[in-house]
């Protein structure tokens, strides 16, 4: 197999796995649920994207025919990841999970839970 293909795939694999790892490190390190939400749902999308592209390139080259079905998983993840993140954030707001001390605009959480505009005095 071509050396450059192998190099490209290796770099993609290590970057992808790195993003997955950073997402999980964020899950452990960050202080409250809302900040933790940012780490995995994002870092993982790009990480998985890198891994899937690597798999696509490698299998296309070893089989000699283009392999595109990994694109489906990538697309699926990119469509579902924001939905999951939104639903989890909504759940946390309605579950009244606390924010870390220094969060700005904590008082907006009450308004968001009631689903009214921030100017209303509910």
């Amino acid at each position: 197999m071509n050396f450059y293909v192998e190099l490209f795939v290796s770099i993609l694999l290590v970057t992808g796995a790195g993003f997955v790892l950073i997402g999980s490190v964020g899950l452990i390190r960050l202080p409250d649920f809302y900040t933790r939400l940012h780490a995995p749902t994002k870092a993982t999308t790009l990480g998985m994207g890198c891994l899937l592209i690597a798999s696509m390139v490698l299998i296309s080259f070893t089989k000699g025919a283009p392999s595109v079905h990994e694109l489906l998983i990538t697309l699926f993840l990119f469509i579902t990841a924001p939905v999951t993140a939104h639903m989890l954030a909504k759940t946390a707001l309605h579950y009244e999970l606390g924010f870390t001390e220094k969060t700005k605009g904590k008082e907006l959480a009450e308004k968001a839970r009631e689903r009214v505009s921030p100017a209303d005095d509910a």
Binding site: L37, H38, A85, H86, L93, L108, A112, S117
Partner: peptide
């Protein structure tokens, strides 16, 4: 979804009258 996908922001809730989007 775009706001949630671009890292650093998550759309959390939409007000009932659809005029305000709460973003973390």
């Amino acid at each position: 979804s775009t706001i949630s996908l671009t890292p650093g922001t998550v759309s959390a809730e939409l007000s009932e009258d659809r005029k305000w989007l709460y973003v973390h």
